[in-house]
């Protein structure tokens, strides 16, 4: 089953922003991986693969949380809410339990990424 048209459009928009994005399909879910995402200077490593998980009802179904591989630290420690790990698609991912109220009419993959960077800035 192909991903929802809106998810594909959002991935294209991120690619147009210069990101390298792949989708791994495990219907009814889709693992969207932004590869080699550059992080703000205080974080280690400098880049990571960032994953979000969408499903077949995206964007009616919310995006929630973020997953990183390799794991990201700040001042040698895991950021707040990012100290748990989960296995997906044969990799161990650091789960960022960061939440907000998703509005399907407003939010997108791009805005989800903006929330991530906004919180990274505040966490640093």
């Amino acid at each position: 089953m192909p991903p929802p048209a809106r998810l594909l459009a959002d991935v294209e928009a991120l690619a147009a922003d210069g990101h390298s994005v792949t989708i791994v399909e495990e219907h009814p879910r889709y693992f969207v991986i932004i590869q080699g995402l550059a992080l703000p200077s205080l974080y280690e490593p400098e880049t990571t693969d960032l994953m979000v998980i969408a499903d077949y009802q995206y964007p009616l179904s919310a995006l929630d949380m973020y997953w990183a591989c390799p794991a990201v630290r700040i001042n040698g420690a895991f950021p707040q809410g990012a100290d748990q790990f989960s296995d997906f698609i044969d990799r161990k991912w650091q789960r960022w339990s960061w939440h907000y109220t998703w509005n399907p009419s407003v939010h997108s993959l791009r805005s989800h990424l903006e929330v991530f960077f906004d919180r990274l800035d505040h966490a640093s």
Binding site: L60, A62, L63, D64, W102
Partner: peptide
Amino acid sequence: ARQIRAEN
């Protein structure tokens, strides 16, 4: 939307 995600 969070409930839809959870149900899926």
